[in-house]
Design a protein around this nucleic acid. Structure first.
Length: 474
DNA sequence: TTTTGAGTTGTTCGA
DNA sequence: GTCGAACAACTCAAA
């Protein structure tokens, strides 16, 4: 029997048992372990999880509960400000140690710093771990100026030079001592699920939780990795060759270490170019965390300050049309409806839809970021902020101002037979292939037979206007 | 210090 | 139909 006082494993965005350094530390400490999740929506301020994120969180917590149950352990749920909850909880359990895995969102960094010093002043042993990024965002520095990277390619090269430091994933630990679980709130009482039924289609599209994440990775390796470099651009279901791991990664149901290892282990000889293209995406994620950590303003302020003067259009009508998938540009609308239906959009289509909001409708990228934040199951502050700044052209590694996506050209190229469009826009089911990418060019009788809106704006005209505006802020 | 080369995902135009 | 160049100028990172 253990006479040691208990240790708390504070779960946050690391809802997994495998490759979990904090959990591993606790299990190896010999102390009785307590498993805690704190529900504190206020901590993140404006960036608290949106509707889709809450849906995922509910099911991910449920999955974690089940996994712990199998180990005869219990996940304790508590609601309230993290620091208060922890202090009470420590008093209640007599714990003298706590562990967690690090987060990098500015609000989380501040919160954790405060909690760490507050607990340490009460003689609580605090240990935190690197778990959700391959490289700590303060560790990768440029050779010449010893500052953080602002351009992806050199950052990526710097990461690859250090690839040998990427550790193999840890196994799920055997937890020998489990503390008798204190009282827990029920998962239902956290109220994470929507009261209206907008989440119906989510259930078929996703399996939140660690097992679902492992399965997604396995499916991706088995079916898609060896055609990823090319296939990743085609959003139609029958051709989709992406991993769909983004929500699992966001909630930490799987770690980048597990992915890195799995990709490198898988058919080593066939690593190029698909393995490299895919791991480059993992490194894009690293870059987003690198930027967010070093530039806490990233979610709200354009990196390129000239963009503070950009004259964005204020139009509720345009914004609503975009959000509801009623712009009259099928590829854009299909993407926005996919987002609404399953809380996720294929990356190629995110770029097209994002470009359309910012360059064709000329609406401030922050409105796009907010909408994505609320509707994406993979809403992630680092990825979302960087992605929108990139598409708007104001990011530190932005697309050149003249790179404006043509929604018709993109549609023809990446959804040639319109399968993706037809899946999400049933009104266009019978539109001939010839007109599917630009229905306004169809003869009137065909157009009239479909209940689909005409284009909200003229692309060629708006492109010209956008180019002029971009020139004006120089 | 200065120089040099490069920069995720594109489009259009003219030969 | 295909192909290469132009589309600005600037900032970043490394030599």
């Amino acid at each position: 029997m253990s006479t040691l006082s208990p240790i708390i494993v504070w779960f946050r965005q690391d809802l997994r048992l495998c490759d979990n350094p904090a959990l591993r530390f606790a299990a190896e400490s010999g102390r009785p372990v307590i498993f805690l999740y704190i529900h504190d929506l206020k901590a993140a301020g404006k960036w608290q999880p949106g509707g889709a994120g809450c849906w995922w969180l509910h099911h991910s917590l449920s999955s974690l509960q089940k996994s712990l149950d199998q180990q005869q352990a219990k996940l304790v749920l508590r609601t309230g400000p993290a620091e208060d909850i922890l202090k009470t909880f420590i008093k209640e359990t007599g714990a003298t140690a706590i562990v967690w895995n690090r987060q990098y969102e500015p609000w989380a960094v501040d919160r954790d710093k405060q909690i760490r010093s507050s607990l340490q002043s009460r003689d609580i042993e605090v240990n935190d771990f690197q778990a959700s990024v391959l490289f700590e965002p303060w560790k990768i520095k440029t050779r010449t100026t010893n500052s953080f990277y602002k351009v992806y390619t050199p950052f990526m090269k710097a990461c690859r030079e250090r690839a040998d430091t990427i550790r193999p994933p840890f196994k799920t630990p055997d937890i020998k001592h489990i503390f008798t679980a204190p009282e827990s709130e029920t998962l239902e009482s956290l109220n994470l699920l929507p009261s209206q039924g907008w989440d119906k289609a989510f259930y078929n599209a996703w399996s939140p939780g660690e097992q679902g994440a492992d399965q997604s990775l396995k499916d991706f390796l088995d079916n898609s990795l060896d055609r990823y470099a090319e296939g990743r651009d085609y959003p139609a279901q029958s051709e989709e060759a992406v991993s769909r791991l983004s929500p699992h990664l966001h909630f930490g149901e799987i770690s980048p270490f597990q992915i890195w290892q799995a990709v490198h282990d898988y058919k080593k000889a066939d690593y190029e170019p698909d393995g490299r293209t895919y791991t480059n995406e993992i490194l894009w994620r690293e870059f987003a965390y690198h930027l967010l950590y070093n530039l806490p303003d990233l979610p709200d302020q354009p990196m390129n300050k000239k963009f503070s003067d950009f004259e964005w259009v204020k139009s509720d009508e345009y914004l609503t049309a975009w959000q509801q998938g009623q712009t009259g540009y099928p590829i854009v609308d299909a993407g926005m409806r996919q987002l609404w239906q399953i809380g996720w959009m294929h990356n190629r289509v995110r770029m097209i839809a994002g470009s359309f909001l910012v360059k064709d409708l000329q609406i401030d990228w922050r409105y796009g970021a907010e909408w994505f934040w609320d509707t994406l199951v993979d809403a992630d502050l680092a990825n979302n902020s960087m992605g929108w700044q990139w598409v708007a052209g104001c990011g530190p590694d932005a697309a050149p101002f003249f790179r404006i996506f043509n929604p018709v050209t993109q549609s023809r190229k990446f959804d040639p037979d319109g399968a993706y469009i037809r899946q999400y826009i049933p009104e266009l089911a019978n539109m001939p292939d010839k007109y599917i990418h630009a229905p306004w060019t169809a003869p009137e009788n065909i157009r009239k037979a479909c209940d689909y809106p005409p284009p909200v704006v003229d692309h060629a005209q708006m492109r010209k206007l956008a180019l002029e505006k971009y020139k004006a802020i120089k």
